[in-house]
């Protein structure tokens, strides 16, 4: 299930009948409107994935921007491999391609951040007064965020893709460049770690 109030992940599903191949051909022809269509179609999902992976809104936007620009750069090659009308056109899924790029970029940044960051650096304090309800909501959000952030990078990606975005295991495995058996094992470990962390927070499932 998804977090409440969010669009259904089915918005990320590929266009049928080689629609993505047409989109790729338009991108290859450097049509700005095609790029805008890609952002409108896939941007929100990619942003949610990147945000839940990194926990940082600006970082998530950077990742999505870089992924979309990589698609823009690679569009001529992708369009040539999946030319409109060819059998390969029906297999092209730009959403899956972008998800893979975003997942890899997010994992790269998490590793880089861990190398550079110092655990003793405190969070920036916010002195603005907040309403009680807002404080409670933030506390709940912080606990959920801490649960996800405590997972290792790839386990985090597995939970974000399968739980929050309701991706089938096959697609999530493809996004992480893993075979299905290895991914299922990773997902199993991720759920177990999540339950353990949740229990440690004091709320038994």
């Amino acid at each position: 299930m998804t977090a409440s109030g969010e669009p259904s992940p089915t918005a990320h599903r590929p266009a049928e009948g080689g629609g993505d191949a047409v989109l790729a051909a338009r991108l290859a022809a450097r049509e700005a409107e095609a790029l805008r269509a890609v952002i409108a179609q896939h941007g929100p999902v990619l942003h949610r994935i990147a945000f839940r992976m990194t926990g940082d809104d600006h970082e998530a936007e950077d990742i999505v921007q870089e992924a979309v620009l990589r698609l823009w750069d690679q569009a001529p090659t992708i369009a040539a491999r999946h030319s409109v009308g060819s059998p390969a056109a029906g297999t092209l899924r730009l959403g899956g391609w972008l998800t893979r790029v975003v997942s890899n970029l997010a994992i790269d940044r998490l590793r880089r951040t861990r190398r550079l960051s110092d655990a003793e650096v405190p969070d920036s304090a916010d002195g603005a007064p907040l309403a009680d309800a807002l404080i409670a909501a933030e506390q709940r959000d912080g606990q959920a965020r801490a649960l996800i952030a405590a997972l290792p990078d790839r386990q985090r990606a597995a939970i974000v893709l399968t739980y929050y975005e309701e991706m089938p295991n096959v697609e999530a495995a493809a996004a992480l460049d893993m075979n299905i058996k290895a991914f299922e094992s990773l997902l199993h470990r991720a759920r177990a770690a999540l339950r353990q962390a949740f229990a440690a927070q004091g709320d038994a499932p």
Binding site: M1, T2, A3, S4, G5, E6, A32, L35, R36, I39, A40, G43, P44, H47, R48, F51, R52, D57, E61, V64, Q65, V68, L69, A137, R140, D141, Q143, A144, R145, L147, I148, Y163, Y164, L194, R195, F198, Q201, D203, A204, P205
Partner: peptide, 23 residues
């Protein structure tokens, strides 16, 4: 309970003008 806890982790939407910046 775990699902309810996880669902508290809401994601913000893309900022206004994001598509224009990427373009």
């Amino acid at each position: 309970p775990l699902a309810r806890k996880l669902d508290d982790f809401a994601a913000p939407s893309l900022s206004v003008g994001f598509a224009d910046r990427v373009l």
